[in-house]
């Protein structure tokens, strides 16, 4: 994506009229769920905080802000990232997908349907991250990526052990793990991960 310096777009988009300090702020164009957001951001702003506090997508959660829990997992160009460890300025040019961007209007993706049906959450706070992580993980698997539990030299086969290993960056304190694993496997069995 070409970067265009759109000096008036922040105002046009109804942004807070923060005076742009060239030393500490940057104007960026953030692609989130297919929508372009022109933001003047404090250079220290993480992608997570930009999504939550600037774009208004609070579905992505802050669990630790240190990349240790996975609650803030989003997809950048289809790959899983913990958005608390990525600066917003570094996300420019990427297509960011958050949990809000996964389903269509009122239509749940298969992975979301299976989480609801199989009770893959309790408090729901880690759920956005679990679901984004599952979508990214299933894509990795589809591309043949091995994991730490894949037998060396062999093609990975998606079973519960593989799912647990590949999802271990996403903590859940309520202990919904068995249902999450089942939801991911059921989704994979449906063969239509992203709908």
């Amino acid at each position: 994506m070409a970067f265009h310096r759109l000096s008036t777009c922040a105002v046009a988009l109804g942004e807070k009229g923060v005076a742009l300090n060239e030393d500490t702020h940057s104007e960026i164009l953030l692609h989130v769920n297919g929508v372009k957001h022109c933001l003047s951001v404090d250079n220290r702003t993480t992608l997570l905080d930009a999504l939550r506090e600037r774009v208004g997508h609070t579905g992505t959660k802050k669990g630790c802000d240190h990349g240790q829990c996975g609650a803030c997992t989003v997809l950048c160009d289809g790959r899983r990232v913990v958005s608390c460890l990525m600066l917003a300025v570094a996300a420019e040019g990427a297509e960011v997908t958050t949990v809000e961007g996964l389903g269509g209007d009122g239509e749940l993706l298969p992975i979301q349907q299976e989480f609801v049906r199989l009770d893959g959450f309790q408090c729901g706070y880690c759920t956005s991250g679990q679901i984004c992580s599952a979508v990214g993980m299933l894509a990795e698997y589809a591309e043949g990526w091995p994991s730490a539990v894949t037998a060396p030299g062999s093609e990975p086969v998606l079973d519960a052990v593989e799912v647990r290993e590949r999802m271990s960056g996403n903590l859940c304190r309520c202990g919904a793990y068995p249902s999450i694993v089942r939801a991911v496997l059921e989704t994979a069995a449906r063969g239509e991960v992203t709908g």
């Binding site: 809000e100 389903g103 979301q112 989480f115």
Partner: peptide
């Protein structure tokens, strides 16, 4: 399934900081 299930899997469920 939980009544708030769809809200929780789409990110619509609001927590205190949201």
């Amino acid at each position: 399934p939980r009544v708030e299930g769809p809200a929780k899997v789409t990110g619509r469920a609001r927590y205190a900081a949201d």
